[in-house]
């Protein structure tokens, strides 16, 4: 059998670059001893290596500095003030609720209506008194001293009777 016949196929050369153990035992043995196959393999490896090196050479370098998040201690400080703010907000909400409940209780529409009704009754009484005074402004005790049957006597007559004009 000639040496050429035993040379690795191009596909086997590709496989040897990826996974030499993946080659059949006979081919692996051949590769170990055949300078022709070793050169073929090395050339393929060199080309692949050159692709990697060229990519690295032709790629730019990063210029921007990586910025990390703020320190944990600072974050803790923030979280404390957030906690405090939260508590403050809860207290404020509670205060608002309490005040609004009290206001609701004190000035409920029902209570307001009762108050208005009472005030209306008092106003009405006052208006009646005013009307009565308009009709007859003399106190009732003066009426008692008038002679009987003098019901249509005017206020002026009574004044003349009580305090005669000389």
């Amino acid at each position: 059998m000639s040496m050429d016949k035993d040379h690795l196929s191009p596909e086997e050369l590709s496989l040897s670059v990826v996974d030499e153990k993946g080659l059949a035992g006979q081919s692996r043995d051949h590769l170990k001893h055949c300078p022709v196959c070793q050169r073929g393999r090395q050339e393929l490896v060199r080309q692949l290596d050159l692709v990697g090196k060229s990519a690295r050479q032709y790629a730019p370098e990063p210029v921007r500095k990586i910025v990390l998040p703020v320190e944990e201690e600072q974050r803790k400080g923030w979280s404390l003030s957030w906690g405090f703010t939260l508590k403050l907000a809860a207290a404020a909400a509670l205060l608002v609720l309490t005040v609004s409940w009290l206001v609701q209780f004190r000035y409920s529409p029902e209570i307001d209506q009762n108050l208005i009704a009472r005030e209306m009754v008092q106003d009405e009484k006052l208006m009646i008194e005013i009307s009565m005074l308009e009709e007859d402004s003399l106190p009732a005790s003066y009426r008692e001293i008038l002679p009987e049957g003098a019901s249509d006597v005017s206020d002026e007559d009574i004044y003349d009777f009580v305090v005669p004009i000389s």
Binding site: P10, E11, L13, S14, V18, G22, L44, Q47, L48, V51
Partner: peptide, 15 residues
């Protein structure tokens, strides 16, 4: 390895 073998073999053929 399978994907890589196929890629390398294509590289060999088409480089």
């Amino acid at each position: 390895k399978t994907h890589l073998y196929r890629a390398v073999d294509k590289f060999r053929k088409e480089q």
